[in-house]
């Protein structure tokens, strides 16, 4: 965590979805989608969240936007708690925090023009129609779409990359301070994704934005993030500056994840043991450390206790935190590096 006060701070965020079944449609199980997640995003930085699909990344995003109500957890925006006395309400939060979704087509109303979609939120917040349209046109221009050509078009007439630019413009229309990008470039071609990433970097500069960048694509996260948070089965297993996470990963899961990263460099091809099997079912997660069922270093202590997210023993406290019982040095020794 940096010295700057956090723009967004989340403590103990938890969401368990009930699973109904049986003849009386009773609650038969619980999906622990997000379990006691804490994170902080400093103003001006980009926090990347990585993890396999189903690890709770998108649920976390929706919880932060309050599209889903959390079961537990405190959310502080700019030091003020959301939904608490003396804090800010959800509507105020949503003005300051916006979101870009993965599916560029589904996130635009097919019956609305591009201009209408972008101008919609400002109008709902009381901006006059003409001013809202003018702002939308300016934003279209800013995201690289010529307003004269695109303003009156409909979503199905645009390409995926163009639509995602529209979604970014729409997210910026309320002039938020923080933008959550939920797999925002994952569905795009590599070259288009690169253009959109560069656009995001430019916009961040220009509008002083803070990003929460959620993706399963390790290369993209490495490129855009200042800090990275690794999630596994609804929990944070490691967090730290991007160079530390990618250069000296401390959690076995992070290592396995990085080892699976595709690369064109023959010197860096996969040599480390790959991650096998699927993640366990979040309905009934393993006791203690949730990764122990797939971990080569798992010990008796791993089943008994949940490891806290902290600087490893014997390390000077820094911003690189890991939730693992086995010290990195010991892992190295077992692994034979």
């Amino acid at each position: 965590m940096s010295d700057a006060p956090a723009l967004l701070r989340v403590e103990g965020l938890t969401k368990h979805f009930p699973v109904h079944g049986g003849p009386l449609n009773r609650r038969v199980a619980t999906v622990r989608a997000v379990d006691d997640v804490s994170l902080a995003v400093a103003a001006g930085e980009t926090l990347g969240i990585v993890g396999e699909s189903g690890c709770g990344k998108s649920t976390t995003a929706r919880l932060l936007m309050r599209l889903i109500e959390p079961d537990r957890g405190r959310l502080l925006f700019d030091g003020r708690e959301v939904g608490a006395a003396g804090g800010i309400d959800v509507t105020t939060l949503r003005r300051q925090m916006q979101m870009v979704f993965q599916d560029s087509y589904a996130s635009l109303n097919p019956r609305m023009t591009i201009l209408g979609s972008i101008a919609y939120a400002p109008r709902m917040h009381g901006l006059a129609a003409r001013a809202a349209d003018a702002r939308a046109e300016a934003l279209l221009d800013r995201v690289g779409l010529e307003p004269r050509q695109f303003a009156r078009r409909y979503p199905h007439e645009l390409s995926g990359g163009q639509r995602q630019r529209v979604n970014i413009a729409r997210a910026l229309a309320l002039q938020p301070r923080l933008v959550i990008l939920d797999e925002a470039v994952s569905a795009l071609d590599k070259s288009v994704a690169a253009q959109v990433l560069n656009l995001l970097a430019d916009l961040k500069q220009q509008f002083n934005l803070t990003y929460l960048f959620i993706s399963h694509d390790l290369n993209v996260v490495e490129y855009i993030s200042d800090r990275v948070l690794v999630m596994y089965l609804g929990q944070v297993v490691e967090t730290g500056p991007v160079a530390a996470i990618y250069g000296r990963p401390r959690h076995p899961y992070t290592r396995a994840l990085l080892a699976s990263k595709p690369t064109l460099d023959p010197d860096r091809r996969t040599i480390s043991l790959p991650l096998t099997g699927d993640p366990p079912n979040p309905i009934d997660p393993p006791s203690g450390c949730r990764f122990r069922t797939r971990c080569g270093f798992a010990d008796a202590v791993c089943a008994a206790r949940t490891p806290p997210l902290a600087a490893p023993l014997g390390h000077p406290p820094d911003a690189h935190l890991v939730a693992c019982h086995v010290p990195a040095a010991q892992q190295q020794a077992i692994h034979g590096h």
Binding site: P122, A134, A138, R142, R148, R152, Q175
Partner: peptide
């Protein structure tokens, strides 16, 4: 919230005739 006019200032002038797609 930031002033509402901030983005308008950097943009292109408002358009009067936009070639409409139907």
């Amino acid at each position: 919230m930031a002033p509402l006019q901030a983005i308008g200032a950097i943009g292109v002038p408002p358009l009067t005739s936009v070639p409409a797609s139907p």
